[in-house]
Structure formats: structure tokens, C-alpha cells
Design a protein around this nucleic acid. Structure first.
Lengths: 216, 216
DNA sequence: GAGCATACCTACTCGTGCGTAGGGTTACGC
DNA sequence: GCGTAACCCTACGCACGAGTAGGTATGCTC
């Protein structure tokens, strides 16, 4: 058809794997800009330079597409962190490297990851995916704290540790949000600030210092 | 019409103020259970025991209705916190009371507030409302830290303080999420754990201890 | 160069749910 | 007791966007 020739002069058939990545790129972009519901499959397809049925053929439903985005971006992030924080380092060093990798990643994908991530928290179908990912992070952090504690011959309830880890992960996520909203901010510096909050607190906790509510 | 007689035998006309509250109650419930988009105005109207046009007449558009929910619940929460944390107390006491009030509130409104709140983070139109509210909290926390610091004759950059406050607020929000997902958990205990993370960290910071990245 | 799988398209259907038009009924002031 | 304002209803219109039917072209294998 003439229409196609004029709209895409450099039209080329591409292998599935390549097109899928292009679609995912477009999907991340559109989902981030519009939000899950406001995003339309038409726009995504358009942005990917392809027609809608192709998206359905390759990536399935809108929901499945979103999950695919979440999965790809999440995996990339996890790899970035895991690659930076070797498990044989001391706790503070691991924490620092992990944080730096994380904020570096978020900083580099400002409108990608953080916004996608925010979306997922709200809608029920995706919350599970997120919970799993966060769970892995919490586990890692809790494990790190536990390891450091045992090395000092101390023992703390599992739930306590987990909740503390949860709080730290939450604080980190929040700063990631903040970073995504402040394009001028420096990821490295943000990581340092987070480290201040997390480590100085964690350090005290590791020392066995505990705060408890005043009587009454 | 006969239909009405059989469906609502105890039918009564109510003044606007009362009906509005009933509608908001229903809206909070439905939005929480279904999420913003999946929630239908019909269901909300139905749940409030009223017909749809009434909702539009009183509270306006679906978006406006959601904002109204957010606003009412947010105000209630703010009041709960402000009422608990008197500004003339020492910093740790204020923080503790504020946290306890906050987690108490969230615990008492598990499916109300926390879920509503999660929704709002994703959709652009509501993010602004949330940002404002969070901003107020951050301001309070940052002000508290600043006050405590000045009392010790110390000085810290405004941005630093704000980011630290942001991290603390974020951690608290995360634990609130956790609390909402764990019906068996105790709000008081959660507040204590948060206090451990926040205060032991803040205490060190207030002492002038600072962590900085290792060379290289 | 025939056959087949794969890449790709245009042009629909159809459910869903927001928002409204247009009209009825009860209370309340005077 | 009569007007008027506030309360409340049963329908509908209508747009929007997910997902599909059905068909075309291109490259790859043998």
C-alpha cells in the first residue's frame, strides 16, 4: 500500500526478538508517561512503529504487556544491584555498593523505572509482582543485618529484623521517587544521604542499642 | 414507583451534608477494594444507597470524588498526628508520639487510608494532592530535626535535612503499607520499630556523626 | 521457484461505564 | 394550603479503547 511507503520509507521486516524489545521500550515509555489505564495499546503500537495486532501477537494482553515491562526492568535493576554488592564484603560496604548501584540505576532510568514502579503499587494485578521483588530485596537486607549481628554474637527476632529491613527498603524506594522527580539531583549524593540514614541507624542497632517507649 | 418502596422500605430524605458523608464513606470503601479505575460510579452510588446522579450533583466527577476522599481521609490523619505531637516537646518525644498516632490511625483504617493512598501514587491527577500532604509531613520532620540541631549549635544544609526527612517519611509510609497488609500486626509495636530505625539514626546524625563514602 | 512459515496490515466489533436529560416527590416557609 | 426549592429517580447517549477477523507480502528452505 502506498500509505505505508510514505509513512515508513525505511520499512523493514525484523525478527521477533528485536521487535519485542522495541515494543517493550515503547510500552515502558508510554506507560510511564500516561499511567497504565490512560495508556492505549494504539499509542504503544504507534510508538513502536508497528500495528496493534503485532503487539497482541507477541506480548499478549495489555496486562501481560505491563507485567512484561515490569519484569524486564525489574530484572535489569536486580542485576545491577547484585553485580555491585558482592556477598563476601563487610555489611557497610555491601550496603553502600548496593545503594549506589540502585540509585545509579534509577537515576539513569528516571522516567522508566520509577514511574512504572509507582503504577504497579496501586493496581491489584501487579502488586503481587512487586511484592515478590521487594520481598527479595528485604530478604537480602535482612540477611545482611542478621549476618552482621551473628558475627557479634547477638540474636534478634526474625520479624524485628524483617520489619527493620522493610523500613530501610521503603526509605530507599521513597528516595528513588524523590530522585525521579528531581532531574537535577545527583544519584551518588542521594545514595550517600540514604547511607547516612540507614547505616548510622543500623550501626546503632547492630551495637545492641535499642529504643523503647517511655513508661505510660 | 413500586420498585423504590420494595427496595428501600425505610426510605428517607436526608440533608445534603449527611448524604455527602455517606457517599464519601461508600466511595472510600469501593475505591479501596477495586482501585480507582475498576471502581464504578454505579457501585459507589449503590453502596451509598443512592442513585448515581445524586453523586454527580453533590460531589462532581469521578476524579473530583476521589480527590474528595483523599482530602477527607488525609485531613483526618493530619489532625490525628497534630493532636498527638505537641510542638513544645523534645524531638524524640514528638517523633514518638507522631509515629504512634500515625500507625494507630493507619491500623484503625487499614482498608481505608492505606489502600486509597497507594492508588493515589500512581495516577498523575492525584499525585499532586499527595505530594502536598507528604510535603507538609516532610516539612514538619525536617523542622523538628533542624530545631534539635540548632539547639546543639550545629548547622546542616537545608537540602540534606529535607532529604533525610523525606527518607524517614518514606520509611514510615512503607511500614504503613506493611501494616495494612498484615492484619494481625500491632500498630504500637510497628511504631516502636520505626522509632528504632528513625531515632537511633537521627540521634547519631544529631550528634554530628556523618557517614561518607570510602575513597575510590 | 514452489511451498510454508513468519512478519505485518486495515478495518472492524462490542462491552463498559462516565456523565446527563428530563421529570417526579417531599418538606418548608409564608 | 400553596409555591418553591431541595432531594431523588429512571432511563439513556455516547465515546473510547481492548481485542479480533481476515487478508497480504516477504523471506527462507529444499
Amino acid at each position: 500500500m502506498l500509505a505505508r511507503v510514505s509513512s515508513t520509507p525505511t520499512f523493514k521486516r525484523l525478527p521477533r526478538a528485536v521487535r519485542e524489545q522495541q515494543m517493550l521500550d515503547a510500552a515502558v515509555k508510554v506507560f510511564s508517561r500516561r499511567g497504565f489505564h490512560a495508556a492505549s495499546m494504539d499509542e504503544i503500537a504507534d510508538d513502536a512503529g508497528i500495528s496493534k495486532p503485532m503487539v497482541y501477537a507477541y506480548l499478549g494482553t495489555k496486562e501481560e504487556l505491563f507485567v512484561a515491562c515490569l519484569h524486564r526492568e525489574g530484572t535489569r535493576m536486580m542485576e545491577a544491584i547484585a553485580g555491585a554488592a558482592a556477598p563476601d564484603l563487610p555489611a557497610d560496604e555491601r550496603l553502600w555498593r548496593g545503594l549506589r548501584a540502585f540509585f545509579g540505576f534509577v537515576g539513569a532510568h528516571r522516567d522508566g523505572w520509577a514511574v512504572l514502579y509507582r503504577q504497579a503499587r496501586g493496581e491489584q494485578p501487579f502488586a503481587a509482582e512487586l511484592t515478590t521483588m521487594r520481598g527479595r530485596l528485604v530478604e537480602v537486607v535482612a540477611g545482611m543485618l542478621d549476618h552482621a549481628l551473628r558475627a557479634k554474637g547477638r540474636e534478634v527476632g526474625v520479624t524485628d529484623l524483617e520489619v527493620v529491613a522493610y523500613a530501610l527498603v521503603g526509605a530507599t524506594e521513597s528516595l528513588a521517587d524523590w530522585l525521579a522527580d528531581h532531574p537535577e539531583a545527583d544519584p551518588e549524593k542521594t545514595a550517600t544521604r540514604m547511607m547516612n540514614v540507614a547505616w548510622l541507624g543500623a550501626d546503632q542497632l547492630l551495637r545492641g542499642v535499642t529504643w523503647h517507649p517511655p513508661a505510660g
